[in-house]
């Protein structure tokens, strides 16, 4: 066998080159990951992930905006008329179909709790405005109904209901 032929076949040295390179690449990736991961929400941000709020001072027909994880959250005490309107809408009329029942807690139908950022690009919609007796986003013209569901405009989805539960009749835990 000529020397040239030996060089064209795969040998131990080639294996060592590839193995060293592969270990080096894994090592580099392992170093880069923490440098990227530091950008993710930090412990102090995550520590605010759960809050409790007493809804008893909110009168019927009144809304408040509170802050949860840095996001504004609507807490609305709905009137019977609004609940009735929301429940009368056939699901076929909705862009993002969801029943009003699925957006509130059973026995607490008057309380509508939603993240207050429009699902289009995040502006805060104006309350009790728009064509559907709900919310209207002035940025790009999305209309939401009295259940916070998208009815008209560029937003793709209903206002987001955060995970929450009623600890008592008036105390809500969000997150």
């Amino acid at each position: 066998m000529s020397t040239q032929a030996e060089h064209t076949t795969t040998n131990r040295r080639d294996f060592l080159f590839v193995a060293t390179g592969a270990v080096g690449a894994v090592g580099a990736a392992a170093v880069v990951w923490p440098l990227i991961n530091q950008l993710n929400p930090d412990a102090s941000t995550l520590a605010l992930a759960s809050i409790q709020y007493d809804v008893s001072p909110i009168a019927e027909g009144q809304s408040v905006t509170i802050t949860w994880r840095g996001l504004p959250v609507f807490v609305r005490h709905r009137t019977p008329k609004e609940i009735e309107e929301a429940r009368a809408v056939p699901l076929s009329d909705l862009k993002d179909p969801a029943t009003d029942e699925s957006r509130v807690k059973e026995g607490h139908e008057q309380w509508l709790i939603m993240i207050a950022n429009c699902t289009h690009l995040g502006c805060i919609p104006t309350g009790q405005a728009g064509d559907f007796d709900g919310w209207f986003c002035p940025c790009h013209g999305s209309h939401y109904d009295s259940s916070g569901r998208i009815r008209k405009g560029p937003a793709p989805a209903n206002l987001v209901v955060p995970p929450y539960e009623f600890l008592s009749d008036t105390l809500v835990q969000i997150g």
Binding site: D42, T45, G122, C123
Partner: peptide, 30 residues
């Protein structure tokens, strides 16, 4: 807020990317 919400339009990983860019759930100190 509006521009960072552009990231959330990406299917599946959009919200994770948005949180990575903002360093939180909304625009803030980070």
């Amino acid at each position: 807020t509006v521009i960072s919400n552009i990231f959330s339009a990406i299917p599946i990983v959009g919200d994770s990317i948005k949180q990575l860019v903002l360093g939180g759930f909304a625009v803030g100190n980070p």
